[in-house]
């Protein structure tokens, strides 16, 4: 394998996806509007909770927004990732996939370039959320390094979901079926995690699920960094778990893609 050529191939697939991303104004607008809606509406309606001292202790903060921001970041990465497989299916339907496959490029560059673009797109979205959150008065205790750490975790999570989406896309070969399955996955994944509600406020059975939900693995360390500081014994588990899952998800996506074009 020629590393330079592989990187060049990945770069051009990535370049195309990013061009498309910035062209689609509606997607960019939604990237801003969605977190605003979540933070302003949801944040406000839930802020009554924090006036209850028990709830405040469960949340670990007197400001619900502080608690919620990492959850919104992950949700954005989640939504970006789950529909990542769609682009391969459109390429297939419009014949662009065949065009890439007759070119002398590494096959793996196609899923890799698409996943890389999902990762970078989630950075943009997380940065937008950070800006909105700061405007709304959220304080990140670890400052810029903490924000970069959250960026990394959120994008790793985006890659995990993107890899699953690409794998399913390769197997199903139907945009409609992919959307149905991913929609079915998204909401339960979100509500059985610690993204919106502290696990300590959950019934035991739900807490059990939340504890193994990969979304919780991403949110917990982000929340620690945002609200408490660099407490590494709380951070490394999430970081290792997400890195591992992202690698596995990428490998499976490449493998499934190879199979689907054989």
């Amino acid at each position: 394998m020629n590393m330079g050529r592989l990187l060049s191939d990945v770069y051009w697939v990535f370049w195309r996806e990013m061009k498309r991303f910035f062209l689609q104004r509606s997607r960019l607008v939604m990237a801003v509007v969605q977190p605003v809606v979540w933070l302003v509406l949801m944040g406000n309606s839930m802020s009554g909770l924090t006036r209850n001292p028990i709830a405040a202790r469960m949340l670990g903060t007197g400001n619900y927004l502080d608690f919620m921001v990492p959850g919104v970041m992950i949700m954005t990465a989640l939504f970006g990732g789950v529909f990542g497989g769609t682009s391969v299916l459109w390429d297939r339907r419009l014949g662009f996939l065949n065009k890439m496959l007759t070119a002398p490029i590494y096959r793996a560059a196609i899923p890799l370039g698409k996943l890389l673009s999902l990762m970078v797109q989630s950075w943009f979205q997380v940065i937008i959320i950070v800006v909105i959150a700061v405007i709304l008065g959220v304080h990140f205790v670890t400052g810029l390094p903490g924000v970069l750490f959250m960026l990394l975790l959120a994008s790793l999570f985006g890659v995990i979901m993107g890899g699953i989406s690409l794998s399913l896309a390769s197997m199903l070969k139907s945009i409609e079926a992919l959307h149905a399955i991913m929609n079915f996955l998204t909401l339960p994944l979100m509500f059985t995690s610690n993204a919106m509600f502290p696990t300590r406020a959950m019934p035991v059975w739900l807490r059990r699920i939340a504890d193994v939900n990969p979304l919780s693995y991403a949110v917990a360390p982000m929340r620690t960094v945002a609200m408490k500081g660099w407490i590494w014994q709380d951070l490394w588990v999430g970081l290792v778990a997400l890195t591992f899952l992202a690698a596995v998800s990428t490998a499976v996506a490449i493998r499934q893609f190879h199979r689907s074009i054989a």
Partner: peptide, 18 residues
């Protein structure tokens, strides 16, 4: 083979967004 050939499919496979 891929290096030596050009392929124009019947799909009009150009990217509309570019």
């Amino acid at each position: 083979v891929r290096l030596a050939i050009g392929y124009v499919s019947q799909d009009l496979a150009v990217d509309d967004n570019l």
